[in-house]
Simulated scan of single mutants.
Amino acid sequence: MNDVVKPKRIGILTAGGDCPGLNAAIRGVGKTAIVEYGMEVLGFHAGYSGLISGKYNVLKESALSGILTLGGTILGTSREKPFKMAKNGDNLKPEKIKKNYAKLGLDAVVCIGGNGTMKTASLLAQEGLNVVGIPKTIDNDVWGTDVTFGFDSAVQIATDAIDRLHTTANSHQRVMIIEIMGHHAGWLALYSGLAGGGDIILLPELEYNIRSVCKKIESRYEDNKPYSIVVVAEGIEHPKDKSAASHIAEAIQTYTGIETRETVLGYIQRGGSPTPMDRILATRYGSFATQCIAEGNFGTMVAIKDNELTTVPLEEVGGKLRLVESDHGLIQKARKMGVSFGDEFL
């Protein structure tokens, strides 16, 4: 009599900030696991908190229907860092995770998130858990992959906002500053700034000179271009008691005397339904992550390189950032079209 092979039991969690495409990734993992491999799927609540507390739902295929287009995450999320030491020096959270992993008979966990999530996933892998990571973030700054899902949706939202500011700026002949998310990486500001026709784009990776910014604006007015759009990443150098947009707007108005207004786009960039590109990317990532589990390819993060799916070791991802390089092709092309990055007179 042949032994009955027990189907694999896997967990899924979404951690860190929300972004469009999380549900598409959950669906990609879950449907592939259930339909293709006959696996049982558990969805853990609120990121790593669910692994610590053992709170989960069994995800049947029916629960994964109708979520492809939804923003947010049906599992909830949190910024729980289980390996962060408590104030008293105790930290039992990793042990609780390992106990719940064993108690529930898990064969693997799929961790969907950004840089912090991948770092924690790597530490869990070092503790002996079978882990596969899926990279998401609107900042597009996860090391080891060409693109993260959530980025394309955020670019579309930010670009739409810039498009709308053009009409107001032109009507009132003003300088309009729009602040885009991105603490360390300027990918979102760069892409939306170019797509939206920004005249000046300020990135965290490039040192800028406010006099250079003002000179660009004044030269545009001298050339009978009565308004300017300045796209600013939130992570540029600025006083911490005000927003980046407010700092740049005050400086421009002070030095040029030209009427200036600022808009901080904020969390609007992270919400809503994912674009078709993000739905496809998240689905590809999710399905491939399940394939990695079936093949025993653990301790890895799924990635895209030259539009081909691959994996990179989690231990190489944690703690690194994918930043915009000063000689990036888009920056070079933009400079040739007259776009300023605030560094022309440094």
Rank of each mutant, 00 (worst) to 15 (best):
D3M: 12
V4C: 08
V4T: 14
K6D: 12
K6P: 05
R9L: 12
I12K: 05
A15M: 00
L22T: 02
A24M: 05
I26T: 07
G28W: 00
K31N: 10
T32Y: 06
T32I: 00
T32W: 00
V35F: 13
E36V: 11
M39V: 09
E40L: 10
V41N: 06
G43F: 07
H45Y: 14
A46T: 04
S49V: 04
S49K: 13
L51R: 01
G54M: 07
G54V: 08
E61V: 10
E61H: 12
S65K: 13
G66V: 04
I67Q: 11
G72H: 08
L75M: 09
S78L: 08
E80T: 15
F83P: 04
A86M: 11
K87V: 10
G89R: 02
G89M: 05
D90Y: 06
N91D: 13
K93G: 03
E95P: 03
K96D: 11
K99T: 12
L104W: 07
A108Y: 03
I112H: 01
I112K: 05
K119Y: 14
K119A: 15
K119C: 09
A121P: 03
S122A: 15
S122H: 09
A125S: 15
A125N: 15
Q126D: 15
L129N: 09
N130Y: 10
V132L: 09
I138H: 06
N140M: 07
W143R: 08
G144Y: 01
T145Y: 06
T148M: 03
G150M: 02
F151P: 04
D152A: 09
A154T: 12
T159Y: 02
D163L: 04
H166P: 08
T167V: 13
T168V: 07
V175I: 13
I178G: 11
I178A: 15
I178K: 02
I180C: 08
G182E: 10
H184Q: 14
H184R: 14
A185L: 08
W187R: 04
Y191A: 12
Y191H: 14
S192W: 04
A195R: 05
G196V: 03
G196P: 06
L203H: 07
E205Y: 01
E205W: 01
E207G: 03
Y208G: 05
N209A: 09
N209L: 05
R211C: 11
C214S: 11
C214Y: 07
I217V: 15
E218R: 06
E222W: 07
G235L: 06
P239L: 01
D241A: 01
D241I: 02
Q253D: 13
T256I: 03
T260H: 10
R261G: 12
T263I: 13
V264A: 11
L265D: 12
G266T: 10
P276H: 04
M277E: 10
D278S: 03
R279K: 13
I280P: 02
I280D: 06
L281K: 07
L281Y: 00
T283H: 04
Y285H: 00
T290M: 03
T290C: 09
C292R: 00
E295Q: 09
G296C: 02
N297Y: 00
E308P: 00
E308M: 01
T311M: 06
V312I: 14
L314G: 07
E315Y: 09
G319M: 10
L321F: 14
L321S: 13
S326C: 08
H328N: 15
I331V: 09
Q332V: 14
A334Q: 07
D343Q: 02
D343G: 01
E344M: 13
L346V: 12
L346K: 09
L346H: 12
